[in-house]
């Protein structure tokens, strides 16, 4: 349905997006995962025809959108990272304006406004000015505005940045419903691994402008099928002990926090005996040990050597 072919964007000497090829099939939910500065927003801007690529192509239903972006714009609903609303107007007035831009009027416009307000759960507060809304409510109107023209594809650029957990859950649930119940195709970018894991069927992982891995969540996690993660919590911080444990033969990666340590080790490696032995030698008390299967975060760590929040 939507395909990018070796999409590249260069700003002076900076290569923001480097040969990115993505594909979205009808009705699926695709995640674009990467840390800040990975090039996700630039890629989204090119896909949504707001930014001209330096090279490469974007196709919708097999037709290039570079010369005539009209086809793409008709089917696309874009939820920008910034809250792109008129804050001195009410949610209702904002939606009315964005609906009018797409030629909606009269009863149809009113029905559509009612539908999207219901969808984001703001029907009873539609007359309030956007500037009086909480950050989460503003994010919900931001999504509603992109839904006014019944788009086939919804592109969301980090739509949950800076909002409270309750609004975040509401927003994620709305997106999940749109995808599962209404069959809307979704391209979801985020640097929150858990959001992408929860919402998306397939994932592209981007770093430094490039797609470094792609596949279903299971396929990506299979990269680490020979590994497991051990998370150990102590009663307090033991820098020397943490260093010693990180250097145990076989440990592939160590992530040190204040009172805890996360070690990536080969599956089947006997770590616990050495762990308790070293802890006793340092007089440290282990309060919790948890062995877990790899997450997308671990995959990213393995592929880039960095965490998503680095």
């Amino acid at each position: 349905m939507l395909k990018t072919d070796k999409l590249t964007k260069k700003f002076k000497d900076t290569l923001a997006v480097d040969n990115v090829s993505l594909e979205l099939r009808k009705g699926e939910s695709v995640g674009l995962l990467g840390p800040n500065g990975a090039g996700k927003s630039t890629a989204i801007a090119m896909i949504s025809t707001l930014l001209k690529p330096s090279s490469g192509d974007v196709r919708i239903h097999g037709k290039s959108v570079l010369k005539d972006p009209g086809d793409m714009r008709r089917v696309l609903g874009v939820v920008p990272q910034k809250i792109a609303l008129y804050e001195e107007l009410s949610a209702y007035e904002n939606l009315k304006f964005f609906g009018r831009l797409y030629g909606l009027s009269g009863k149809k416009l009113e029905q559509r406004i009612g539908y999207v307000l219901d969808l984001v759960g703001l029907s009873d507060r539609k007359k309030e000015l956007v500037k009086h809304y909480s950050g989460g409510m503003q994010r919900r109107v931001n999504l509603a505005a992109a839904m006014m023209h019944e788009p086939e594809v919804l592109i969301m650029d980090e739509p949950t940045v800076g909002i409270d957990p309750q609004s975040r859950n509401h927003l994620l649930e709305t997106i999940r419903r749109l995808n599962h119940e209404e069959g809307m195709t979704v391209l979801y970018t985020s640097h929150y691994m858990e959001e992408v894991e929860k919402l998306c069927d397939r994932v592209y992982i981007m770093d430094r402008g490039k797609v470094i891995a792609e596949g279903t969540k299971e396929e990506l996690k299979a990269i680490l099928s020979d590994q497991e993660t051990v998370w150990i919590e102590f009663d307090q911080s033991y820098p020397e002990l943490f260093k010693k444990l990180s250097e145990i033969e076989g440990v592939q990666h160590a992530d040190v926090e204040e009172r805890s340590l996360k070690l990536m080790i080969p599956k089947g490696m006997r770590l616990l005996a050495s762990l308790f032995h070293e802890a006793e030698r340092h007089g440290a008390q282990v309060t919790n040990v948890h062995v877990q299967t790899p997450t997308l975060e671990d995959v990213f760590l393995r592929l880039t050597g960095r965490t998503l929040r680095d």
Binding site: L50, R73, I83, Y102
Partner: peptide, 10 residues
């Protein structure tokens, strides 16, 4: 960003 929203419309 409302300008971009308008650009994306017809």
């Amino acid at each position: 960003g409302t300008w971009n929203r308008m650009i994306l419309s017809p």
